[in-house]
């Protein structure tokens, strides 16, 4: 089966909502979903809960969740709550995102 990727740009002002949208669009037909955190400076407990729920469902549906553009402060938060092992991380920056999309086959941005 060809690799299919979903791509979500996360709005820094409504992180939980964006993650929730990604959550709702998780589809077993897709192998992975990519969340672009490059606009997110800080996350809240609510955002964390949304991420936990997303990754929980993604695991159940064998969908790989890739986070890109995650700043080191947020990465540390994820590390502290032991979530880093449950996500994949791509390097920061648009070029990395593009490279990631290319690697994944025909990328499909939803936002």
């Amino acid at each position: 089966m060809a690799a299919i990727a979903e791509f979500f740009k996360i709005d820094g002002d409504r992180v939980a909502e964006c993650i929730h949208e990604a959550h709702m669009q998780l589809d077993t037909a897709r192998d992975q979903t990519t969340l672009d955190f490059s606009s997110v400076l800080r996350i809240s407990p609510k955002d964390l809960r949304a991420m936990e729920e997303l990754v929980e469902r993604a695991d159940n549906q064998s969908v790989k969740v890739v986070l890109c553009g995650v700043n080191v402060d947020i990465y540390k938060v994820l590390k502290l709550v032991k979530l880093t092992a449950r996500f994949s991380f791509a390097s920061n920056g648009a070029s990395s995102i593009e490279a990631h999309q290319e690697e994944s086959g025909h990328a499909e941005a939803t936002e």
């Binding site: 996350i43 407990p45 964390l48 809960r49 402060d73 938060v77 994820l78 709550v81």
Partner: peptide
């Protein structure tokens, strides 16, 4: 879990 998330987020 609630406290853990709060403490983690607080580091920012």
């Amino acid at each position: 879990q609630q406290a853990r998330n709060a403490a983690a987020v607080f580091t920012q």
